[in-house]
Design a protein around this nucleic acid. Structure first.
Length: 573
RNA sequence: CGGGGCGUAGCGCAGUCUGGUUAGCGCGCCUGCCUUGGGAGCAGGAGGCCGGAGGUUCGAAUCCUCUCGCCCCGACCA
């Protein structure tokens, strides 16, 4: 360790918000070069390599083959697929000396499809699954959280090509299982969840989320493990519990009430002295240049991803002030479905609402005792509200649970989107020329490393899962001046390496406390201490990082003890 | 892109409002002494184009203009 380049830092860096970012800097894993751009130092790179190795082994095991595509790709390919215009600013575009345009690869559907369309022409050569582990570049609007949302990051991306949906499904299922094996082997607690496929399309997609309270995305899952329902917040649906409406009566006529300057659900429900679920919240959205009204129960938020999915558009937007005024003849905050001329869609949370309160489409007025069917009509009930954890599981009706997660992988059934756009075809048995059916499967490698830290750390530092720990064992030589002890340490160091352990020897000339603190910060699963008890009694101490369990043993017992600890800590699948 | 903030030693910061000796402090680094089971102590030392350019002034880290970079909130996220 006197020679190792592991620059640890005692102080928490000022610009690091989340734990993983702080610890990755403090433990000397990486250093920032620019916004969202990091140099991986030896200690950090070791972890990345371990994760990559697990991914390689499992991908190869699943029959995928590794290749490596260029990071730079010509603009023509992106224009051909249409994404040159669609992708937006996240796609980093650059020009070469001849003024030709290129993109830094944020993902490689175009490039792999181009390769396969020129090389694979027959159904006899299908299916095929190709992957790479490579640096990606996405010019994120706002990079943050260290490597969790970096611009440059390491990703494994795989692409499969098939003759038909059934074959795709088969590979998809294999990849699904492979991902479970990968994240299990990485020692992570995770959940595969049903997810929104976004602009990429396709019916079925799963995200793999590492469970951590600091996660950016919310997940909902059934409290009953045997049911197994789990979905991202964008995709989750639930059975919405019905509410009480005894404060109003269906038999009373609709009544216009002056509500000066009361715009929000909170203000209006306070004014009427009722709970928020009495209100019919009316939001105006612009969908494909048309204004539509979307209703939800006052206590429910609209899920725009669901709206996009319903309207089959990649883009919906809340209407601007002008549009609201022209659609409702009232200022923002007083919209309601009664007498509205734009199409009205209602969230299913309104199905069980017999009577409610809503905006009057007149500034400073709301309507009370509003009854659907009597006072207004809706075009359609759709599921567009955010699921909450009081909702029932859509599969088994038991209550849903909510937790936070970090998305580290996603598997997609792409279908023919890219093969059609790029005219990538093969010949079937009859000689017909048909577009490939495709799947794609990504894992954020660097993000997985950060997620592992988010999930496993304490106040002293990182606690690596054994399988991805940069070193399995750290030997703390407390007194470097005792020559005989030093020699012993070196013997143990060599022996353990020969037994297949990754070992770090801390032979630095610093005080013991310094070494203990550093060892904990680095998170190495097993500490071996050669200190007082070794000098006096010939005993070495072996301590686990995870639970602090300590063993005092004779040197010759070390291999057997480590073997036990390894078996205990290493995950096998 | 909108809003807010910050660029001063390797790192973390003070000084800027109200211009004026030699630009400070903590950590780290180097030397020595001392210490050695949870980030010790003492003494000495090195280290700065005060982000960059232009301007105002007798004089600028400090005031003005422009510019570059970074951070936070929001929108965005195959």
């Amino acid at each position: 360790m006197t020679r190792a380049f592991i620059p640890t830092v005692k102080e928490t860096p000022a610009d690091a918000e989340v734990i993983s970012h702080q610890l990755m800097i403090r433990a000397g894993m990486m250093r920032k070069l620019g916004a969202g751009i990091y140099t991986y130092l030896p200690f950090g790179l070791k972890v990345i390599r371990k994760v990559e190795q697990i991914i390689r082994e499992e991908m190869n095991r699943a029959g995928a083959q590794e290749l490596l595509m260029p990071i730079l790709s010509p603009a023509e390919l992106w224009m051909e697929s249409g994404r040159w215009n669609v992708y937006g600013k996240e796609l980093m575009r650059i020009k070469d000396r001849h003024n030709r345009e290129f993109a830094l690869g944020p993902t490689h559907e175009e490039i792999i499809t181009d390769l396969v369309r020129t090389q694979i022409k027959s159904y006899r050569e299908l299916p095929v699954n190709l992957y790479q582990i490579q640096t990606k570049f996405r010019d994120e609007i706002r990079p943050r959280f260290g490597v969790m949302r970096a611009r440059e990051f390491v990703m494994k991306d795989a692409y499969s090509f098939h003759t038909d949906e059934a074959s795709l499904k088969e590979t998809y299922d294999i990849m699904f299982e492979t991902y479970k094996r990968i994240f299990t082997r990485c020692g992570l607690k995770f959940k595969p969840v049903l997810a929104d496929s976004g602009a990429i399309g396709g019916d079925t997609t799963h995200e793999f989320s590492v469970l951590a309270d600091s996660g950016e995305s919310a997940l909902f899952y059934c409290q009953d493990d045997s049911c197994g329902y789990a979905a991202s917040s964008e995709f989750a649906t639930g059975i919405i519990p019905a509410m009480e409406y005894s404060a109003l009566s269906v038999d009373n006529p609709m009544e216009k009430i002056n509500t000066p300057n009361l715009k929000t659900v909170d203000e209006v429900s306070d004014f009427f002295g009722v709970a928020k679920h009495y209100l019919i919240k009316t939001l105006l959205y612009v969908v494909e240049d048309k204004v539509v009204a979307v209703l939800s129960r006052g206590d429910r938020e609209i899920n725009e991803a669901k709206l996009q999915r319903y309207f089959k558009t990649p883009f919906v937007e809340l209407a601007g002030e002008q549009q609201v005024v022209s659609a409702t003849n009232a200022s923002v905050g007083f919209a309601g479905p009664v007498g509205l001329s734009v199409p009205v869609y209602a969230d299913i949370s309104l199905k069980d609402m017999p009577v409610g309160i809503t905006g009057a489409n007149e500034t400073d007025y709301h309507l009370k005792n509003v009854v659907c069917g009597r006072d207004y009509t809706i075009n359609e009930y759709i599921d567009v509200s955010m699921t909450v954890c009081a909702d029932g599981c859509p599969w088994c009706k038991k209550p849903l649970q909510e937790c936070r997660g970090i998305e580290v992988g996603q598997v997609f059934q792409l279908g023919k989107k890219y093969s059609k756009a790029l005219n990538a075809t093969y010949h079937d048995e009859q000689g017909n020329e048909l577009p490939f059916v495709m799947g794609c499967y990504g894992i954020g490698v660097t993000r997985t490393v950060a997620a592992a830290i988010e999930q496993s750390h304490d106040k002293d530092g990182i606690i690596w899962p054994y399988s991805i720990a940069p070193y399995h064992v750290i030997i703390l030589l407390l007194n470097i001046d005792e020559t005989s002890v030093r020699q012993q340490a070196e013997v143990i160091y060599t022996e353990l390496q020969e037994l297949g352990y990754d070992v770090l020897l801390d032979d630095r000339d610093v005080r013991p406390g310094f070494k203990f603190k550093d060892a904990d910060l680095l998170g190495i699963p097993i500490k071996i201490v050669l200190g007082k008890s070794f000098s006096s009694e010939g005993l070495i101490e072996v301590k686990k990082r995870s639970d602090g369990m300590m063993f005092k043993i004779k040197p010759e017992e070390l291999p057997a003890l480590l073997d036990n600890l390894r078996r205990e800590m290493d995950v096998t699948v």
